[in-house]
Design a protein around this nucleic acid. Structure first.
Length: 685
DNA sequence: GCAAGGTC
């Protein structure tokens, strides 16, 4: 028997179908990922895994955080243990009766590692089996057949590179997480985490907040003129866009009366290029702009993918492969509600020139629709995401939009003014992808020498603005730019930072704890807070692939570095502990006491150990409120309009953070309960 | 109970 192992069910199904010309059958229950068929008289089985089926961990004697010094983890043995037990035993069972094994996991570093892990499991139970590797970068019949007719060997170098990543992440993550958690005695559920990707990401949010806090706004003045010509009104702005003093602005403003003369009128045609195909990050950014959070957008996309509506959503590539037939994609979506008609329109074209993005990768095709959906088959949010994917696809194969921009230079009593207009003349792709379309700004058709009437002058005081906080989508884009995380993990990393209480809100801000952890790490373990740690690791991994370095060498070097860092931190332990505890204490302040003006803080009842919110002026002030006993509690800085108590945010793992005011008898609560009940009824949306 | 990486 020949056994084929793939990384996921969908791939197993596809490969089995292609190699058997559609004759493969699923074996076992409805949740099974095993497909069986015959090929040239030989029995073939194809098993789909669920990503990694093995994980790395320390031996049991290192499990108790309080009993182990974090630095002991640096040299501790690292074990590989099954993380998907049923799949591990399925592999073993099947491998016993197989003489040929083909590893057909994804063609990337992690895929090679998954494959090598499986191969070593198989060698344990069946040392005589021949193990080969199939490599393909798309799931077209030609590519699959080619891969299986020219089998290769497992690339041990690539697999070792993956192992280096795994080991280094565990060693650094575990040792530093335990160090700061132990130093601050934040143990149990609410430990403080550190990691190669999460810590630099936290640092990004903290740095942005620092820029905002240290930003000194400068006053400036703007002068505008409301003008009229032939019954049409429009606004022109003084050419000096920012006057640095009120006097100067006033001098210009005082001349804004009577008439203006058009000094020049320029009309320019401008093309607006259609957007590039969706990779994960671009998709997340677009969904984020439509107010679907990254984690939710990915959850919805994965669900649509497993039901056959869209292609694989975890992808770096932004260029459609030449093997993707645009015409058949259009046909497959032509009976969809709403967007099907749009697809039919584009089916009339003779040829297609899809746009291309910056990233050419061979992992998967960019995200595109694979089937027609009806509105009643999907929840409203699923539909929103499906429609977005379809419309983006249609946009990538349609024409540029054409805009006409107009600029009028106007002289008003010697003061120069400018009016700008922008009007879409040809819709092009905007017909299919209207999401971020700007409103037309029209100007009257004036020419040089024409006169306009001044209706009024406007003088406005403004201030320079600090850079904006990151939205989740923008943060994920920034992570990609900095090389942090992967298409599959970035949204999870951001969600983890939120669940840990490090960052919160929309747009994102760091909590006091987040700021304190980031600054302590920046001072004492700089390496782990910068994207360079990842960049360096990537280089070392490349060197392992090229056999220029060994896995052992790379890890040893990393261990030496971490040991030094931990030694330094050990010396400054009490200082680090103090700093972070100050941050934690900062987050304990929930707001202002409505009866005495003191601080409402999170406290613990001495007898029961239960937490509650109470006034810092106790016993003079006895104000206290109950708190939910599970989840994180964070201040929002806002007070309830109804009852005047501070509003807090409750963070629970795996759930969307929610807000409530502290007063359990607030009249708003009834409304909240009603809202909750109706949400429950309508399902997940 | 630590990380980050796969996949559901």
């Amino acid at each position: 028997m020949k056994l084929i192992i793939t990384e996921k069910n969908q791939t197993a199904k596809r490969i089995a179908q292609v190699l058997s010309d559609g004759k493969a059958r699923r074996e076992g229950g409805p949740r099974s990922t095993l497909y069986a068929f015959k090929l040239d008289g030989e029995d073939v089985k194809c098993l789909g895994l669920r990503g990694h089926i093995m994980k790395v961990d320390f031996p049991p004697e290192f499990r108790q955080w309080q009993d182990v010094e974090p630095r002991e983890l640096v040299d501790a043995e690292i074990l590989k243990v099954p993380s998907e037990k049923t799949l591990v035993s399925a592999v073993k069972k099947l491998a016993k009766s197989a003489d040929k094994i083909v590893i057909a996991t994804d063609y990337d570093r992690e895929g090679e590692l998954i494959g090598a892990d499986v191969a070593s499991l198989i060698r344990d139970v069946n040392p005589r089996a021949e193990i080969k590797r199939a490599r393909f970068s798309s799931l077209t019949p030609t590519e699959i057949k080619k891969a299986f007719s020219s089998l290769e060997e497992i690339d041990e170098g690539l697999a070792r590179a993956g192992e280096a990543r795994q080991d280094i992440d565990l060693i650094w993550g575990a040792a530093l997480t335990r160090f700061i958690s132990l130093a601050t005695t934040r143990l149990g559920q609410r430990f403080l985490s550190v990691g190669r990707v999460q810590s630099p990401t936290l640092a990004l949010v903290v740095q942005r907040e620092n820029e905002i806090q240290s930003f000194i706004p400068e006053d400036y003045w703007q002068v505008k003129a409301r003008l009229k010509s032939d019954g049409e009104e429009f606004v022109a702005t003084h050419k000096t866009e920012r006057f640095d003093s009120q006097e100067k602005a006033k001098r210009a403003y005082e001349k804004v009366k009577g008439k203006g003369v058009i000094v020049s009128a320029q009309v320019r045609k401008r093309k607006i290029a259609p957007p590039s195909p969706f990779n994960t990050t671009a998709f997340i950014a677009a969904a984020s702009a439509l107010r679907v959070s990254p984690a939710r957008a990915m959850e919805l996309a994965e669900n649509l993918y497993s039901r056959g509506y869209i292609s694989y959503p975890r992808v770096d590539n932004t260029v459609y492969p030449s093997t993707l037939s645009i015409r058949s994609v259009l046909k497959s979506i032509s009976s969809a509600d709403v967007v099907g008609e749009l697809a039919l329109e584009l089916l009339g074209k003779d040829s297609y020139k899809p746009t291309r993005g910056k990233t050419t990768a061979t992992d998967h095709p960019p995200i595109y629709p694979t089937d027609s959906a009806r509105k009643e088959e999907l929840t409203p949010t699923e539909w929103k995401i499906y429609e977005l994917v379809v419309r983006r696809f249609l946009a990538t194969i349609s024409d540029p939009a054409e805009a006409e921009s107009m600029r009028l230079d106007i002289d008003i009593n010697g003061e120069p003014f400018v009016a700008k207009g922008d009007v879409i003349k040809e819709e092009g792709f905007l017909r299919y992808y209207p999401y971020f379309r700007k409103k037309d700004e029209e100007l009257p058709a004036l020419k040089e020498g024409d006169e306009v009437r001044v209706l009024e002058g406007i003088i406005e005081k403004k201030q320079t603005q600090p850079p904006p906080r990151y939205t989740e989508g923008k943060l994920i884009e920034k992570m990609e730019e900095e090389g942090l995380g992967t298409k599959s993990t970035r949204h999870i990393i951001v969600q983890n930072l939120i669940e840990r209480g490090y960052i919160y809100g929309s747009p994102l801000r760091p909590s006091e704890t987040g700021i304190a952890v980031a600054s302590a790490l920046e001072r004492h373990a700089t390496h782990v807070t910068t994207p360079e740690m990842t960049a360096r690791l990537e280089m070392d991994m490349d060197a392992i692939v090229e056999r220029e370095r060994t896995l052992e060498g790379v890890i040893e070097e990393s261990r030496v570095m971490l040991k030094e860092i931990l030694e330094g931190m050990e010396e400054k332990k009490s200082q680090i502990s103090q700093e972070i505890r100050n941050g934690i204490r900062g987050d304990m302040v929930l707001g202002v006491c409505p009866s005495c003006g003191g601080e409402i803080r999170i406290r613990k009842a001495k007898k029961t150990g239960k937490r509650f919110a109470g006034c810092g002026n106790y016993p003079e002030c006895e104000t206290l409120y109950p708190l939910p006993q599970s989840g994180g509690v964070l201040a929002t800085g806002e007070i309830c309009e109804q009852c005047g108590t501070p509003k807090v945010r409750i963070i629970n793992k795996g759930r969307k953070p929610w807000e409530l005011c502290l007063d359990p008898n607030c009249p708003r609560k009834n409304r909240y309960e009603a809202g909750k009940a109706s949400r429950k009824k309508s399902g997940k949306n």
